[in-house]
Design a protein around this nucleic acid. Structure first.
Lengths: 236, 236
DNA sequence: TGCTTCAAAGTGTGATCTCGGTTCAGCTAA
DNA sequence: TTAGCTGAACCGAGATCACACTTTGAAGCA
């Protein structure tokens, strides 16, 4: 196991133990955020013992957290040794996920309009501006963070917790790929076009237009993800 | 803890250890099927040690299986003691789940037409007939078993594993309620109407008609579930 | 009779240990 | 030089134990 493969852990550290939450829940939340943010590369292996060492706990809570992530599709077992790794998606799985996202996030968008308040709209607008700034500066970290914030703020307005958790599950699966997708030519520009269209639809409280903008964003992203899939195979 | 609450376990027994599968995976699969089939009532508590005793294993694999089910929404933590129990859904969660099902299962239905083969169609027809027979005999167990088989056979024809797993997750959440829903007046008749409509659409390879039949089935079931929700609150 | 108290039983959580298996570097022998 | 072997290191899986906490029910008191 080369150290280079473990760069995902370099952004993480020992757990800052908070009361009222189980260790397992904190590890799960930490790793899920890391996966959505693309800290781990597709194919990167996650070892129980090493993870426990980084987190400063025993393997027991780590195991349960990783098992949960496996159940969510954020990790997969690999090889005869049953090592857990970040899934390497193929084209058909990507298509599968894209269509689910179009259905669920498109539906959430139509519901979001009626649940939209001024304060939330300002937060969404803020996230949109920060994305633009990140795109101008070429800051992928800042861009991805605010991209998730932008979308989740919209979907949360739908007031559907179960729907929200399913959407989050989809982002967990594509997270590790997104970081490579943003390097696609013109990705920022095309993506921001959809985001501005969504903002306009939100201001006009036009549910159909918002849904269309969201669906276009997902479709464009899926195209770039497919392209980065080729790179991934080529460099593997 | 009264023994009466534990009737869900009476249908389960010690694990028949199969090779090539981890104990944890077998426990998870067993309990998920039991939940989908409605063996456990909403609010029923699941204890690690008791479950381990029934399964004939230690608590470790049971713990991971239950944690996974909690992550899927099939179980929830309850009270200060963090006991796991079968979730008691409220009306808004039911609405949330219904709409997700309409989106995902409706979408899967449209895809299923092109992936349909004669052999699969015969299996679906068989499940439909068994459902009718169970409805005539008032056999809820047999009805529910073939209901899930009927629907899953259709959705699997879409050839979308991720979509399929998300649909299964939704059934896991409503499973414990369905058993009480089938006692609703005319439930069998209305449900079988939709099923026959689906069969006809399958034979005509009419995607739109199949989608409409599935959506109607889900909507009707949701109405009966809401009604059974009232009973649940009243008897609690 | 009704209330408080307290101990026993039950709960999940996390750490530790053993086990069987895989992986891989380094050595031996052809 | 290379094919094959070997042993150390590492992996996850599962059992067991200690611990803190909650629940519960019966005893004891007002």
């Amino acid at each position: 196991m080369s150290v280079e493969l473990w760069n995902g852990w370099s952004r993480l550290g020992p757990l800052a133990l908070r009361e009222g939450q189980t260790t397992q829940a904190q590890i799960y939340a930490t790793l899920r955020e890391a996966l959505i943010s693309g800290y781990f590369r597709p194919g990167e292996e996650i070892s129980l013992r090493r993870a426990a060492m980084v987190m400063g706990t025993s393997v027991t809570p780590v195991r349960e957290a990783l098992r949960q992530l496996e159940s969510d599709g954020g990790l997969e077992v690999f090889g005869g040794n049953r090592v857990l790794r970040v899934p390497i998606l193929n084209a058909s799985e990507l298509l599968d996920i894209r269509d689910i996202r179009i259905n669920l996030e498109g539906f959430a968008a139509t519901l979001a309009i009626s649940g939209m308040r001024g304060s939330r709209l300002r937060l969404i607008d803020n996230a949109c501006q920060l994305m633009q700034r990140a795109a101008d500066a070429g800051d992928a970290d800042m861009y991805l963070e605010n991209n998730w914030r932008f979308h989740s703020l919209i979907y949360e307005a739908a007031g559907r917790p179960v729907l929200m958790s399913m959407i989050r599950g989809m982002w967990l699966r594509v997270g590790p790929l997104i970081r490579t997708a943003v390097t696609a030519p013109m990705h920022f520009d095309r993506s921001m076009d959809s985001h501005y269209a969504a903002m306009e639809a939100l201001r006009k409280t036009d549910a159909a237009a918002l849904q269309a903008a969201i669906i276009r964003d997902i479709s464009d992203a899926a195209d770039d993800l497919s392209a980065s899939l080729q790179d991934q195979v080529r460099t593997a």
